[in-house]
Amino acid sequence: MPDDAVRAQPPSKYDKLIEAVRSVPPVPTIVVHPCDQTSLRGAVESARAGIIEPILVGPASKIKEVAGQHGLDISKYEIVDAEHSDEAAAKGVDLIRAAKGEMLMKGSLHTDELMRAVTAKDGGLRTDRRISHVFVMDVPAYKETLFVTDAAINIFPDLNAKRDIIQNAIDLYNQAGFGTMPRVAILSAVETVTTKIPSTIDAAALCKMADRGQIVGAVLDGPLAFDNAIDPEAAKIKGIKSEVAGSAQILVVPDLEAGNMLAKNLAYFAKADGAGIVLGARVPIVLTSRADTPRARMASCAVAALYANARRRHAPTVAG
């Protein structure tokens, strides 16, 4: 999307992200299987905006065909030929391991195809940290940029997985320029601890883990119900006094089902945009959807690029 098209849209919290990323060098990005208009256009527009330097991995003839059909100029970009989506995912991961890119971007293949290559025990991109997903959401009715995690990768995370999910989101918040010491609400159906709802016990344990330095860089509170996590009046009525209640910036859901429904409710009822990024691998991974708006697709790249730039300062290579 041309820069003037971005500016022509109504003001968005994403505008700050897109503007901030202009101050950092474009990030070399491996785009896996961009074989439809949406995924290829997202890569091309992010490149034109100076956010990424793409390497396109997939069936070369198909990529060129899509580009020709939709008037997308890809003449400047390297294409690595791969016969099909599984091969494209494997080659994309290999390119990351060879230090040819600092970000991975999903094209028109299924998420599980890409993540299968990312999480492979031999030749994948695993680290000691659990891999998780964050929706970075621009909710028009909410003053803060809102993180929702994990709504796409971990189905029923246990306590240790939740610790990593939370730490991944905190690190993204602190390092990608959103601010420092985010307010993290660990969600459940109620705000009191009860054995009848296991997620409330996990929430209490996670808060104590933060007290003991097992989770760092944020202020945690939980369990909190959704209303008293994001609405000051609801928190006041319930008598909850904390730095987090009523003004959370990161929402940690009990499981993928709850997170997926929450994110989609925000998208369709509250008209929120949701940028998607996967964390905990050797490099940030941009997950886009065919339903994403052009600005949300660009925001996903911007968030990942800001994070990759911060990581670059601390980790000079990702070669394995």
Score class of each variant (00 low, 15 high):
residue 94 D to I: 12
residue 203 A to N: 02
residue 188 S to D: 02
residue 195 T to G: 13
residue 118 V to E: 00
residue 157 P to L: 05
residue 169 A to D: 01
residue 191 E to Y: 05
residue 121 K to Q: 11
residue 97 R to S: 10
residue 161 A to R: 14
residue 164 D to L: 00
residue 150 D to L: 05
residue 207 C to Q: 12
residue 107 G to R: 06
residue 183 R to A: 10
residue 86 D to N: 05
residue 163 R to F: 04
residue 110 H to S: 14
residue 185 A to Y: 00
residue 206 L to D: 00
residue 90 A to I: 14
residue 109 L to M: 11
residue 168 N to V: 01
residue 173 Y to L: 11
residue 184 V to K: 11
residue 165 I to V: 14
residue 93 V to Q: 05
residue 204 A to P: 03
residue 208 K to N: 11
residue 131 I to C: 10
residue 209 M to I: 02
residue 212 R to Q: 11
residue 80 V to K: 15
residue 93 V to K: 06
residue 171 D to P: 08
residue 114 L to A: 05
residue 103 M to G: 09
residue 208 K to F: 00
residue 194 T to K: 07
residue 217 G to H: 01
residue 99 A to V: 05
residue 154 N to V: 10
residue 91 K to N: 11
residue 99 A to D: 15
residue 134 V to F: 00
residue 127 T to H: 04
residue 139 V to R: 03
residue 154 N to R: 10
residue 148 V to A: 07
residue 154 N to S: 08
residue 183 R to I: 01
residue 130 R to Y: 05
residue 123 G to N: 04
residue 151 A to K: 08
residue 98 A to Q: 14
residue 118 V to S: 00
residue 103 M to R: 04
residue 110 H to T: 12
residue 122 D to W: 06
residue 137 M to H: 07
residue 133 H to Q: 12
residue 113 E to T: 15
residue 113 E to H: 12
residue 122 D to C: 14
residue 145 T to E: 09
residue 115 M to I: 14
residue 171 D to I: 03
residue 143 K to T: 15
residue 92 G to H: 02
residue 150 D to F: 01
residue 167 Q to A: 06
residue 128 D to H: 13
residue 130 R to E: 10
residue 96 I to P: 00
residue 160 N to K: 15
residue 98 A to R: 11
residue 212 R to M: 12
residue 144 E to D: 14
residue 215 I to N: 08
residue 143 K to G: 14
residue 147 F to M: 04
residue 126 R to C: 07
residue 91 K to M: 13
residue 192 T to M: 00
residue 218 A to N: 03
residue 210 A to C: 05
residue 176 A to W: 02
residue 120 A to E: 11
residue 157 P to K: 08
residue 184 V to L: 12
residue 201 I to Q: 12
residue 86 D to K: 13
residue 115 M to N: 06
residue 185 A to K: 02
residue 130 R to A: 11
residue 215 I to T: 07
residue 95 L to A: 09
residue 153 I to N: 00
residue 163 R to E: 05
residue 138 D to F: 06
residue 133 H to Y: 13
residue 122 D to H: 15
residue 91 K to H: 09
residue 101 G to S: 08
residue 136 V to T: 12
residue 159 L to D: 09
residue 183 R to Y: 04
residue 90 A to P: 08
residue 191 E to K: 01
residue 178 F to W: 06
residue 145 T to I: 14
residue 184 V to W: 01
residue 80 V to F: 04
residue 215 I to K: 02
residue 120 A to D: 11
residue 181 M to G: 12
residue 136 V to Y: 02
residue 117 A to H: 01
residue 162 K to G: 10
residue 115 M to H: 08
residue 164 D to P: 07
residue 132 S to C: 06
residue 208 K to W: 00
residue 214 Q to M: 10
residue 136 V to R: 02
residue 92 G to R: 09
residue 216 V to P: 07
residue 155 I to G: 10
residue 113 E to M: 06
residue 171 D to V: 13
residue 95 L to R: 08
residue 174 N to Q: 04
residue 202 D to S: 10
residue 81 D to S: 11
residue 129 R to W: 02
residue 126 R to P: 09
residue 166 I to W: 03
residue 180 T to R: 14
residue 202 D to V: 02
residue 144 E to W: 08
residue 148 V to Y: 01
residue 104 L to C: 12
residue 121 K to F: 04
residue 162 K to C: 02
residue 192 T to P: 00
residue 198 P to D: 03
